[in-house]
Write a protein that binds this DNA or RNA. Sequence first.
DNA 1: CTGAAAGCGCTTACAG
DNA 2: CTGAAAGCGCTTACAG
Lengths: 356, 356
Amino acid sequence: MKGDKRTSPNKIYDVAGAAGVSLATVSRVLNHPEKVKPATREKIEKIIKELGYKPNLNAKGLASSKSTTVAIVVPELTRSSIAGMVDGIAATAKRRGYLLRLFVNNTSNDEDAVANERELWRTVISSGVDGILYINDEIDDDYLEIIKDSSVSVVLTNSVCSDAEIPSVAIDYKKAAYEMTKEMISRGNKKIWIISTVKKYAVNDLKVKGYEEAMEEAGLEARVINVSGKTYLNEKAYHEILLEDHPDVAIVVRDSMAVSFINVARELQISIPDEMQVIGFQNTKYAELSRPTLTCINTPIYEIGEAAMDLLTDLMHEAEYEDEYYYLDQPKEEPREEIKINKNVDYSIVWRQSTK
Amino acid sequence: MKGDKRTSPNKIYDVAGAAGVSLATVSRVLNHPEKVKPATREKIEKIIKELGYKPNLNAKGLASSKSTTVAIVVPELTRSSIAGMVDGIAATAKRRGYLLRLFVNNTSNDEDAVANERELWRTVISSGVDGILYINDEIDDDYLEIIKDSSVSVVLTNSVCSDAEIPSVAIDYKKAAYEMTKEMISRGNKKIWIISTVKKYAVNDLKVKGYEEAMEEAGLEARVINVSGKTYLNEKAYHEILLEDHPDVAIVVRDSMAVSFINVARELQISIPDEMQVIGFQNTKYAELSRPTLTCINTPIYEIGEAAMDLLTDLMHEAEYEDEYYYLDQPKEEPREEIKINKNVDYSIVWRQSTK
DNA sequence: CTGAAAGCGCTTACAG
DNA sequence: CTGAAAGCGCTTACAG
């Protein structure tokens, strides 16, 4: 369906020709405008706009090894809060002049996980990106080496990792769970459970840990219940559990799972929040579509995406800057403001009908 | 943080050196393996694997103008079903050997929409992709020219467009609504309403049209109600409406909006499904978390993504093939199987508690 | 079947 | 401040 030959896009030569300058000057206007005489620059800028000229990114990337593109590596986008994060990343990327490559790392966890991971990183690097936003629920310790080996900057985004030398942006889930648990204890509740996932997720482990710490400090007995994230499975489990007993407060690591829990409790005539209160993490639309509506620890996923892309941009700029000095082979004067490489984004609490 | 100079990735020269052949031969193994003697090929393939060599995509893209990358252009990923579609696209892209660039076309609709759109397409094209999956709820007629002007293949993905010459993959929403309405009429219901969005979405217009057609055929009065997609806004509207009157059946264009509708109805003591039945489109997790659970027209969004990427791949291959014959300047023998450029993906119906 | 060489569209020291 | 030229890492006719 391409028989008709479309007008091919303008090249830098076309701009240079139209402006009566060499292509080097056009390139400078694009990359180092301060090096071009204002009059020349303005003339060229006008022509660029008129022609709608955009430099070919493959050529630019090859010539300068700067593609102004970053990679986002994610598990499935439908997973909990990934999509919101990517939206935050995309908005910031646009603002800071970067394009995005998307890698959906959807490998069913087979035996060769580490080899697969290494292969993935090679693919990402060879695609010619300037930086990587890495999102992974469970970062195996074996991956750390791969990550650190990367020739471009990497920022772990909402991912837990044991190595503080790797730049990261996240939420302090442990503190959130700890404080929420303390709050509910201070309100006089003693029997507080936490409901987490059967599948091991590092972020959920943190929530459990924060909960356990608060319970221990208060001398209360902790009870951790692990269920499936799938509604039709966890509802069965909830049913069995609630038939036997229920707590004063249930803290659930994901709001969709909390809504299921509420649904099953109501079917068993357990009144919420009077007999049992329920709290979820995340604060998605599920929370307001639930009846009663769900109290949530609101984890601002979009802002995590924004902060991660901001941090990555800063790191990429810093790397450029250091390269210059490396080349000049002289000590840097006035070292730049140190970049804080491990950032926490604030969470908040949205009180709704499922608590009293 | 990059002071340590990391081992730079292997180049094609490294492979050629290790194999004792010229880089041209290595390139051939990568791109036209059938042109290389099996013994040579195997030796080179082994070395490629050992070295973990991956061709630099920028260089490949520049030299061959084939980047094995396609662009996905989407509005926000958090929008209804975009994330699931992108997962389907990503899975198929991986299977068929393509990487992805992601463009989030999140322009607040200002006055210069067409100019923005043209700029976006220039950015996408100049990024050097081989094809584009275009996802847009509302394709302005002014965009058609931009789309058709594209120098690479484009597939509209779950997007309604008046021009059948543009390849597309979608669901026949009109038919789905038509058939569902007929079904509910045949079950003896007469007072059937449809609830759509205030904001104009082409896909929702189709659902309304299908509903209206079925109602008209049956000599029944159609009633279209438009509300906000936002829960806190539509609940107010629902409340006012339901205080006055309610239908036998409500068909709602989005399942999250259907769940809100159910919630408000129950607060007003309208029993579901006995007094009123509710049906949603989409079948996301909202449907099973609702009480009563929600009957849905299941629109398989992941499959749409898969089918769209498959179609795009076929079109890109066809374009390549045609280019070859164009070059040879001779008529093609045995014309290939014609590619069907407008595909519909099947929907299904999931009956749950909100209907009887 | 394989190698030498040109070229893809840019960027960037190097001269001037 | 600007231009000529080399080079980024590949692919692909063209010879052999």
